Simulated scan of single mutants.
Amino acid sequence: MMMTEEPPGRVAVVTGGAAGLGRATVERLLEDGFRVVVADLDRDSGESLAKECGPDVRFRHTDVAVAEQVRSLVGFTVAEFGGLRLMVNNAGVSGSMRMSILDEDFADFQRVFAVNLLGVMTGTREAARHMAENGGGAIVNISSVGGVQAGPGVLSYRASKAAVIHFTKCAALDLAEYGIRVNCLAPGGIPTRLLASATADDEMAKRIRAHMAATQPLPRVGTPQDVAEAVAYLGGDRSLHLTGTVLTIDGGATAGQKPLRPARVP
């Protein structure tokens, strides 16, 4: 049955919402009048953010790799705020960086896929089960340019993010008849603590960031707020005819490296 009614209320869930891209998204959605449930494993940061943001934010300690906790998260949100209109599946982990597949032991595979892929799949399913019975809504899944463009290192991470993109498109087709839009963001080159968690030391992370900045076409460092703006767009009323899309937020890096030209003479 085609669902055409406007979803009730402006209520969102942001997984991995206590820091980085997630925190910026929470703050941006509040500007648009959303009430938000922050889901995260970091209890201290999550509770602190909820306290800082006031009565329109709640915190729910959640491991998205555990299906029952994701189901409980959606139930908690509906009980607290009366509905769910926007689900942002942002929680993610990296893995240990290996510069060659010959050195890879895939010890991080199970956890990376449990959080990055299964967590997104479960979050999408649980949100959609509510939305399908309550006027539809929007789901935004966070992938990565690592899932769009091939490269060495963190192979489990790259594979999981590529799978998120394909899953998003499949879910978009499956859920469109219920008025549920499912879209995907693929950020890249944006400073968060995720890259540092994958590298052996801070110096390596700095070198990788410097390389990304030097090769992307736009001479600007991306910010978590850039991603948050895109979430607000895809989760709001300005994108009602968009579903199954993948938006890269990477300064043009996946379009190609910037051309080599002689320095401009003033």
Rank of each mutant, 00 (worst) to 15 (best):
P7C: 02
R10Q: 15
R10G: 00
A12F: 04
V14A: 11
G17H: 09
G17P: 05
G22W: 10
R28F: 02
R28N: 01
L29E: 04
G33S: 11
G33N: 11
G33L: 11
F34E: 09
V37E: 12
V38A: 08
A39V: 06
A39L: 06
L41C: 11
L41R: 15
D44K: 13
S45H: 08
G46Y: 09
G46A: 04
S48P: 00
L49Y: 07
A50Y: 08
K51L: 10
D56Y: 01
V57A: 05
H61N: 03
V64Q: 02
V66H: 12
A67K: 10
A67H: 10
Q69V: 03
T77C: 12
A79W: 01
E80Q: 15
E80C: 09
F81A: 03
F81G: 06
G83H: 02
M87L: 11
M97D: 12
M99F: 14
A107W: 00
A107E: 13
D108A: 12
Q110N: 13
R111Q: 15
R111N: 14
V112Y: 05
V112K: 04
G123C: 12
R125C: 00
A127Q: 11
A127P: 07
A128Y: 03
R129A: 12
M131A: 05
A132I: 00
G135M: 07
G136P: 03
G137I: 10
G137S: 09
G137V: 12
V140W: 08
N141Q: 00
I142W: 07
S143A: 15
S143L: 02
S143G: 06
S144M: 11
S144K: 08
V145G: 02
V145E: 09
G146P: 04
A150Y: 04
G151P: 05
P152V: 13
G153M: 10
G153S: 14
G153Y: 04
V154A: 15
R158Q: 14
S160G: 11
A162P: 01
A162T: 11
V164W: 05
F167E: 06
K169E: 14
C170A: 13
A172W: 10
L173V: 13
L173A: 14
L175N: 04
Y178D: 07
G179Q: 07
N183S: 08
P187Y: 02
G188K: 08
G189Q: 08
I190W: 05
P191Q: 10
T192H: 05
R193P: 00
T199W: 00
D202V: 07
E203S: 10
E203C: 01
K206N: 01
R207N: 08
R209A: 15
H211S: 13
V221E: 15
G222D: 08
D226F: 02
D226A: 02
V227L: 14
V227P: 02
A228P: 04
V231A: 10
V231H: 08
G236W: 09
D237G: 05
R238Q: 14
R238A: 12
H241V: 07
G244E: 04
G244Y: 12
T245D: 00
T248I: 01
T248F: 01
I249E: 08
G251V: 12
G252P: 08
G252I: 01
A255F: 00
K258P: 01
L260K: 05
L260I: 13
L260R: 13
R264N: 02
V265H: 14
P266A: 15
